[in-house]
Design a binder for these strands. Structure first.
Length: 289
DNA sequence: AAGGGAGTCAACCGCTTTGAT
DNA sequence: CATCAAAGCGGTTGACTCCCT
């Protein structure tokens, strides 16, 4: 890849020192240098660190690479159902405060959450031809997507317990009950420690969370690994189904579980939004605008 | 099999905030 | 208190990959 192409064509290249600065994707060798240097000397100031480590990178670039990719506690791979739920909940509170949101998702970076939001959540808003910040879309998230996620989380956790999960999550209060304990749990202060106990990580997979998690960390921490991107998940759609009460969209009165139950696979890996849903929701959004 | 479009995500940019002097 | 450098943050870009035709 022509890493220097971008910088050389940019408007602000001049000094020979700046010309030497490398940009673009990091190489394995660079990763090694950075990891080794930090493991021996600690972090310190990023600009001097970059220089001392023999990296022809800006301090900024080194910091970003470390925080988003190389640091040992970074967690990669699919965003779990609970993480999705948390992101939705926290975003509704704080908006695009990605770093703040990331504090509640141990091991996840603000960049990752931001990408998730932009690529997955905003996509659905776009498909529905409504603004991601509109009340309509927020209602959709609140009354459709989030209860859907709660349902799926319950299904995933009770699959092994064979406990009943059919307690209807038909009110907003139910979502809050599901969410609030998490929020109180995952304060920024204890986020890193809760990552270890993995109390957030209800995975769809029945395999031990902690095993998965730590395997993932060690694999990703190793700069020799294949640099593959995290597994591409097919995301759960925000909109599972709907119930038209004949008077516009009163999401609060929807019988959510009835339709969702028919989805049935519980693996969180396919898109729940079908063509009819989209047609209906698009109609509603356009009508209400 | 090839080409094009869409989706994803690592990395950069530029502005703001914070901390040191 | 003022200034400057570093760090932090959110927005944006562009390369890569996947999927569909």
């Amino acid at each position: 890849m022509d890493v220097k192409a971008r910088s050389s064509s940019g408007p602000n290249m001049v000094s020979t020192e700046e010309e030497d600065l490398k940009r673009g994707p990091w190489t394995i060798e660079e990763d090694f240098k950075l990891i080794n240097y930090i493991s021996i000397h600690g972090k310190g100031r990023w600009n001097s660190l970059a220089h001392s480590a023999g990296l022809k990178r800006t301090g900024k670039s080194c910091r970003l690479r470390w925080l988003n990719y190389l640091r040992p506690d970074v967690r990669r791979g699919n965003i779990t159902l609970e993480e999705q739920l948390l992101i939705l909940q926290l975003h509704s509170r704080w908006g695009n405060r990605w770093s703040k949101i990331a504090q509640f998702l141990p091991g996840r970076t603000d960049n990752e959450i931001k990408n998730y939001w932009r690529t997955r959540v905003q996509k659905h808003a776009k498909q529905l031809k409504c603004d991601v910040n509109s009340k309509e879309f927020k209602d959709t998230m609140r009354y459709l997507w989030m209860p859907r996620l709660v349902e799926r989380i319950q299904a995933a956790t009770t699959t092994t317990n064979t406990a009943s999960t059919s307690a209807a999550m038909t009110s907003n209060a139910s979502i809050e009950q599901m969410m609030l304990p998490n929020l109180s749990y995952y304060t920024p202060d204890n986020a890193s420690t809760t990552a270890s106990s993995d109390s957030i990580g209800t995975q769809v997979s029945p395999i031990s969370d902690s095993i998965d998690y730590y395997n993932g960390v060690s694999t990703n921490y190793n700069p020799n690994h294949d640099y593959l991107q995290a597994n591409h998940e097919s995301l759960i759609s925000p909109i599972g189904s709907y119930c038209n009460n004949g008077d516009g969209m009163d999401f609060g009165l929807m019988e959510l579980n009835h339709h969702w139950a028919s989805d049935g696979d519980g693996d969180g890996s396919h898109n729940l939004l079908n063509a009819e849903d989209f047609f209906f929701l698009q109609h509603q959004f356009n009508f209400n605008m």
